[in-house]
Nucleic acid binder design. Structure first.
Lengths: 117, 117
DNA sequence: TAAACATTTGAATACCTATTCACATATGGA
DNA sequence: TCCATATGTGAATAGGTATTCAAATGTTTA
């Protein structure tokens, strides 16, 4: 079959039209996707779930997740840039927290999903 | 600093212990992460949102999302394997639907997240 | 000041993955 | 039967990314 964009053989124009109305702009969908993507890595998701339990520093997270502070720090930067966590510095130590009202609903739904399996 | 697993310098044992209690098993966290990851790609997320609006076939999705049926089919296979969508064949045409009670809560939260930006 | 330590950062690397392309399969109609 | 069409599939590839390693930065304390 023709590999080009499927323009000729549109099967259900009504359904396509309805979905087109309901679908957010690509730009916005991409933005939501970027949040899902951040939660889609086990290390980052564990960081988020750990911070959901308690404020923690980089070394805490490294010990808890049995990895290196460097790996944690790299991932925290991504989470921070996306506004999912924020940092609070106290002397040498940097404490990380979940950003309220950002991804907690998504985290909650993820845990609910787990219960259904 | 030592790049090995951070065992020596555990800063807040109480917080680590609390988080360790609350954190699901790595195996389970990884499974949730795999769902987020599937939603973390713009093409797949748009497929999911489109199917949330209406049942559609591969060609419909290709036309709506302005890509090839092949690309759509590849992504649908991943979504099907994960149990997020299911297929219903009718003659030549394969209709795809969202699997109820699977990722709809996650989708809803994603759209809510969009409203907060 | 010097040393120890928590964290960050940049480059390198190994792995993953989304799309494309070519082709196969399957179904319906002429 | 032959053809058009809808979908699936496998290999190849280009781009993305998580981790590691080495080094730097900033901060406290001796």
């Amino acid at each position: 079959m023709n590999q080009d964009i499927c323009q000729v053989n549109i099967i259900h124009e009504d359904r396509i039209a309805k979905a087109k109305e309901q679908l957010p702009q690509l730009k916005n969908v991409t933005q939501i996707a970027s949040i899902y993507k951040l939660l889609g890595d086990p290390t980052r998701l564990r960081i988020m779930l750990a911070l959901n339990a308690s404020e923690m520093c980089v070394c805490d997270l490294a010990a808890l997740l049995e990895t290196t502070p460097s790996a944690i720090s790299h991932q925290l930067r991504l989470l921070r840039t996306a506004g999912l966590v924020h940092a609070r510095k106290e002397g040498k130590i940097v404490y990380y927290n979940l950003e309220e009202l950002s991804a907690q609903g998504l985290l909650r739904e993820g845990l609910l999903y787990l219960e259904t399996i």
